[in-house]
Design a protein around this nucleic acid. Sequence first.
DNA 1: CTGAAAGCGCTTACAG
DNA 2: CTGAAAGCGCTTACAG
Lengths: 322, 322
Amino acid sequence: MTVSRTINGQRYVSPELRDQVLASIRALNYTVNKSARNTRNGSSAYCIGVLYSNPSSAYLNEIMLGGLQESSRTGAQLLLETCTGLASQKAALKKLLAAGVDGIILPPPLCDSRLTIETLKAEGIPTLALATARPLEDVSSVRIDDYQGALAMTRYLIGLGHREIGFVKGDPSHTPSDLRYVGFLAAMRECGLDIDPAFVVNGLFTYRSGLAAGEALLKKKKRPTAVFASNDDMAAAVIAVAHGLGIKIPEELTICGFDDTPVATTIWPSLTTIHQPIVEIGRAAVAILSEQIERQQKGEIPQPVHQVMKFTLMERGSSAPR
Amino acid sequence: MTVSRTINGQRYVSPELRDQVLASIRALNYTVNKSARNTRNGSSAYCIGVLYSNPSSAYLNEIMLGGLQESSRTGAQLLLETCTGLASQKAALKKLLAAGVDGIILPPPLCDSRLTIETLKAEGIPTLALATARPLEDVSSVRIDDYQGALAMTRYLIGLGHREIGFVKGDPSHTPSDLRYVGFLAAMRECGLDIDPAFVVNGLFTYRSGLAAGEALLKKKKRPTAVFASNDDMAAAVIAVAHGLGIKIPEELTICGFDDTPVATTIWPSLTTIHQPIVEIGRAAVAILSEQIERQQKGEIPQPVHQVMKFTLMERGSSAPR
DNA sequence: CTGAAAGCGCTTACAG
DNA sequence: CTGAAAGCGCTTACAG
C-alpha cells in the first residue's frame, strides 16, 4: 500500500516512511510489474500487426518510427511481418492472426490488396490502410491527397517560369501513381500549357526505372526545362543522369520529386519535393487503430476513420527559375 | 476455466462445450486480456529505451526493425527517444528514466558517450552499446569487427589487381572510423603496397563530405584505380562525382563502401560493400538486454555480454578487376 | 498519515 | 471431462 503510494508519488506518505521505502526499492532492485499494474487499471495490452511487402523502403521505416512513438505511449505492442509473393502473404497473415493481433496496419502496396482486406474483415479485425489513393468506405485509412500534392508541385514549377515540363510516372499498380499524374495534368491544363507526349515517360518508383526515364527525357535534342518525377528515388536517378550528361542542376534543369524520403536530403543538390509527414502518418495510424481496438474490446462496433494529412512543398536546391 | 482451456488449446474439453465457448467468444468479441495473462504467468512486461541522436540514419531504422522482431517475441515494449545537443541528451535520458525503462540501447554515436553511460550505470540500468569500436568491459555491446571488415575489403581490392587505392576516412569522432582506416593500412602493408598520402582524404560519413572527397581524389592528373570509402553514403557520393567527370564505373574506376545501407542497392551501379547484419544486430541487442532485465528483476546481478556479429563482403557492380 | 481488504482477468493445481 | 478455489502483483475505496 505505502509502497504503491510512494511509487506513484501520491500524497499522504510521511517523509520517513517514504525514504525507507525508497531505500528498500534500491536494495532489492525492485521494479513495478507493469502487467499487474495494467491488469488492475483495466487497460488490456493489445497488439497491432504491420504486414508489409516492401522491406527496403525508407517509407516503412519512418512509419514504424511514428508507430512506435504512439504505441509506447499507449502501451500497444507492434508486431512486424513481411511477405513477398501471394502465398507468403497468406502465410504472413495467418501468422499475425495466430499471434493474436488485435488490429492490422497495411502499408502500400498491400493497402490495396482486396484479398487481405476481405480476410481481415471476415475475422472482424480492425484494419487500417496506409497511403492508399482509393480508400474503401469501411476500412480506416491515413493518407495525404496525392492529387493536390502533384497539383501544387506542378503549379510551383509553372510559377518558376517552366513551360516544357517532363513527367515520370510511378508504378501503375500502386494507386497513388495515377492521382499524381492526374494532378500534374490538371495543373498544366489550368495554365493552358500543352503536354508534349514525349515528355511523359513511364517509371516504376525504383531508382533503376528512374535512370531509364531520365535518359529517355534528357538524351534528346529537345528536352524539358523541368522534370517532375513521381517519387524521390526516380528524381534522384534523373539527377544522376543529368550529372552524367554534364547538365547543371538547377541552372540548366530543374528536377523535383515526391515523398521527401531520406534520399531527398542525402543527394546533392538536395531535392525539391512534396513532404509527406510519414512519421506523423505512422503515429496517426497506431492512434486510430488503438482507439478502435479499445472500442471493440468494450463490445462497441468501431466506425472506420479516414484521416487526410497535410503535405508540404519543400523547396530545395534542385529547382530554380527557368 | 473451460474458456481458458479452450483458448489455450488444452486437452480435456468436450467438443460441444468447446463449440459453445467459441461461439460466445465470437458473439461477445472477446479477446484475452494479455496483461492479466502475463500477470499470472509471472512475466513482467518491461520496457527497453532506445536513445538516438541521428534521426535520418537508415542504420537506426534497421536496428528498430530487428529490435521489434525480437521484442514482439518476448513481449518487451520499445521506447524511442531522440536528442540533438548535449542538453537535449540529458533531457531525453531523464525522460526515458521517468518513463520507467528497464534497459537502454545506445546506437552510435551515443554508444561512446561517457556521460550517458555513467548516468545509466549510476541508475543501475542495464545498458547496451551498439557498434562501438571501443567496447567498455562493463557495458554490454553488439558490433562487427570493423578492423577485419576493412582488412577484408582492402584485400579484395588488391586481389582484383588494384595497387593505387584511395581511401576516404570517416568522422573522426566515431570510434569505428579509426579501425576501418587501420584495417585498410594493415592490408596494404601486408601486401607491401605503398600508400600515396594524396590518396587518403578526410570525410565525415556524410554524402556531402563524400562529394568533396571524391573531387579531391578524382580531379587530379594521377588518380587511384580504386576508392574505398569508409561508408556507403560517401561511396555513393564518389560515384556521383565520377559520373560527373565521365569516368566509367567499374571499367575505369572501382568504388566500394562499408555498411550495406539501403543506398548501396538503390544507386547504379550497385555498391560493393561490407554488409553489416544490422537487423540481426538489433535483434541481438534486444535479446541480450531482455535477458539482463529478467535477471535483474529476479535479483541477480547481470553480467555484461559482448557479441561480435559476422560481416559479409557484398560484391556488386561498382567493383571490377583493375 | 497508514494499512487490511477486495478485486482486476487470468491460469494452475485440486477435487470431483 | 468440468468447475470451485487460490493466487499472480498491483491499485483503490475504506476504515482507522
